[in-house]
Design a protein around this nucleic acid. Structure first.
Lengths: 200, 200, 200, 200
DNA sequence: GATGAATGAGGGTTCATTCAT
DNA sequence: TATGAATGAACCCTCATTCAT
C-alpha cells in the first residue's frame, strides 16, 4: 500500500518539475500569452494535470517567478562570502543578467502581485542584494546612495529591453551592463565593446 | 455657428481622436490584452466604429505607437536648438521619461514590427536622438561610445520596469534616471533624491 | 425647377443601372456572400445609395434574378417565330446555357422565393419555354412527356454544376448538354466532342 | 453491460457522430451559411466541442463531404459484383440519387478543393463509377463516349436542382433520372411518370 | 438623391477551467 | 492521480442596415 503510494508521489513530483520547466520556457517566450495547453504539451502531460498541481494559471506563474527569485537569492548568498565585496556585487549583476536574459520573467511580476509566497521570495532576494550592496558601499566600491532594489530594478530593465531588440548582438547586454556599472561607481567610465546598435 | 456646417466629417474626426485617446489609455494599461471592445467602450462608440477607423487591432496599435514616436521626435527637435548640448540631452531624457511614464507603449513595439509607418516614425526619432547625442559628445558632456538608440533603449526600459512596481514613489524614476545619467558621464556621480524603494 | 429634377432622376436611373450591373457581376461570382459594399464599390457609388434603390439585399437579388428571367424570356419569344420548332428549342437551350454560364444566378432563386415580381417573370419564362416545347413536340422533335420547366430546370442544374468544377474544359458544358438533348429525343444518340473530364 | 467500460472514449465518439449528423443536416440545408453555433446546437453540445473534434469549419465540411464520397464508393463497389452490368449502373444512379437527395452537399465541393483527404475519397469514387461505366459500355448498355465523372456530374446536377424546386412531387427526381438514362442509352426513350412540375 | 459614419448582431476561433472516467 | 472531453466566456472581425448631413 505504501509503495505504490510512494511511486505515485514521485511521479507527481516528477510531473511538477517537468511542468515548472515547461512553464518557465513557455512563459519566458510568450509571457502570459503562453497557453496552459502549450505548457502541458511541452511537459508531456495532459492539460488536467497542470491544474492538479497548480490551481490556476496565476498560481503557476507565481511559483515560476518565485523560483527565479529563490535562485537569484542563492547566487547572492554565495557571493556574500566573497573576500572582494565590490567584485562580488559586479559578479552578481553579471550572473543575474545572464540568468534573466535566458529566461525573462520580469514582466510577469504584475500577475503575481499580492501572492504571499512570491512576496516572501522577493523579500529574501532584496535582503540578499541589500547585503551585497552594503558591503560594496562599505568598501567604497560603489556610490553610497543606491539600494539593492534600485540596482535590481535597473538590471531587470536592461535585460528586458535588450530582449526587445530585433537585431541584438551578443555584446548588447554587456554594453548596457557597463553603463550601469559606471553609473554605480563613484568615479569615471569604461570603454564599451562591440558594434553599436542601430535601432531602438 | 458657421463651424457646425461641416460637422459630419468633424464628428468622424472627433471619434478618431476619442478612439486614439481611449486606445492609448487601454493599451498602456493592459498592453495587447486590451480588447477592442474596451477601447470602444471607453471612447463611447460601438465596436464596429473602431474598425471603420482602423482596419485591424494591429493597425490601431501601430498608429498609437507611431504617434508616440512622433511626439518624442518633436521634443528632440526642439531641444536640438538649445545652446547647451549636454543639458539638452538630459532635458530630453527627463521629458521623454515623463511622457513615457504617463503612457508606456514601448512594449507594444514588437507588435508593430515591420509596419512601414511606424518604422518611419522610429527612424525619425532615432535621427533626433542621435543628433542630440552627437552634440553632447562633441561638447564632451557624455561618453563617446554610446549612441542615441542605446540611450533611448535604456530609458524605455527604466520607465517600463518602474511602471511594473506596485509601490513606486514619485522619485523612483528620477533615482534611476540619475544613475543612468551618471553612467553616461565621463566622470563622477550625483546624489540620489527621495526615499529608497523597498521592492523590486 | 423641373430640369434639375429631371437631371437628378436621370442620375438616379443611371445609378440604378450601374448597381444592377455590379450586382449581377458580384452575385454571379460570389452568390449571397457578395457584400453590399462590394456591389456599391463596383458600381462606383456609396453604400447608402444601394439602399435608396433597393430596400434590402434580398430585393436587389430579386430584381437581378427577375431580370435574368426576362432576358431568357426574350430569347424564347424570338425563337418562337422560327420555322424549325425542334431547332428552335435546341437553339434556345444553347443560347440560354451560354447566358447562364456567363452569369449563373440560378442558385439565388431560393432567396427570391415568394417575391411576386420574380414569380411573375418566372411564369412568363415558363410560358415561353412551354410554347417552345409544345411546338417541338407537335413536330415530333422531342419526346412528348417533358415540359418546359423540366428542361429549364435540367439546363440550369447542368450549368451550375459544371461551374463548380475546378478543371473544366471548354467542352464540359457541351458534353453534358448533348447527353441532355439525347435524353430528350425520341431516338438515338450523338457523338460527344472534346477531351473527357477526369473529375467530378 | 461490458460495453460501457470504455464510455469516456465512446462519449467522445458519440459526440463526433452527433456532430457529423448535425453538420450534414445543417450544411445540406444552408450550405456554408450554416453556422458552427447551429451545428453545435443541433448536436446538443457547446460550440467549443465542435472545434475539439474539427479544427476548423472547413475541416468539418471536408469530413462530411468526404464521408459522402466514401459512402457512394461503397455502393459502387458492391454493384461492381452484379451479373447485369447495365442494370448495375442504373441501380447505382438510382441509389446515389436518393442518397444525394437526402443530403445535398455537392455545392460544398468548392470549399473542400485542395483537401487531400477529400481528393482521395473523390478519386476512389471516380474509380468506382468508371468501372461501372466501363462494364456497362462493354455490355453495350450505354453509349461509349461518356465517363464516370460525366454521369456523376449530371446526376449531382439533377439532384441539386430537384432540391431547389419548391413544389417537388415524389416523382420529380425519377422524371429527371429517366431523362438521364435515356440520354445514356444508345437508343430510344422511356415514358415519364407523375405530374408535371409547374415551376422552375 | 447621395454620402459615408455608426451601429450591433452574429460568425469563427481560442482558452482557462471543470469533471467524468 | 492522470487524462482529455466538454464548457462557455471572450475575442477579433464582418456586414446589412440606419441616419445625420
Amino acid at each position: 500500500m505504501t509503495l505504490p503510494a510512494r511511486s505515485l508521489r514521485s511521479d507527481a513530483a516528477r510531473n511538477r518539475e517537468l511542468l515548472l520547466a515547461a512553464a518557465e520556457e513557455e512563459f519566458s517566450k510568450r509571457g502570459m500569452d503562453a497557453s496552459i495547453a502549450d505548457v502541458a504539451r511541452r511537459a508531456g502531460v495532459a492539460k488536467g494535470t497542470v491544474f492538479r498541481h497548480f490551481a490556476t494559471k496565476e498560481e503557476l506563474v507565481a511559483v515560476v517567478v518565485g523560483g527565479h527569485f529563490v535562485s537569484l537569492s542563492a547566487v547572492a548568498g554565495k557571493l556574500l562570502e566573497s573576500a572582494d565585496p565590490t567584485g562580488a556585487l559586479l559578479e552578481f549583476l553579471t550572473v543575474a543578467a545572464k540568468q534573466l536574459q535566458h529566461q525573462d520573467l520580469v514582466f510577469l511580476q504584475a500577475v503575481t502581485e499580492g501572492d504571499p509566497t512570491v512576496t516572501e521570495c522577493r523579500n529574501q532576494l532584496h535582503a540578499g542584494t541589500n547585503a551585497l550592496v552594503d558591503r560594496a558601499q562599505e568598501a567604497g566600491g560603489i556610490r553610497s546612495d543606491v539600494t539593492g532594489p534600485d540596482i535590481l530594478l535597473i538590471l531587470c530593465a536592461l535585460v528586458h529591453t535588450v530582449g526587445l531588440q530585433t537585431e541584438q548582438s551578443p555584446d548588447s547586454l554587456q554594453r548596457h551592463l557597463i553603463i550601469l556599472f559606471d553609473g554605480l561607481r563613484p568615479q569615471g567610465a569604461s570603454p564599451l565593446p562591440g558594434p553599436v546598435p542601430e535601432r531602438l
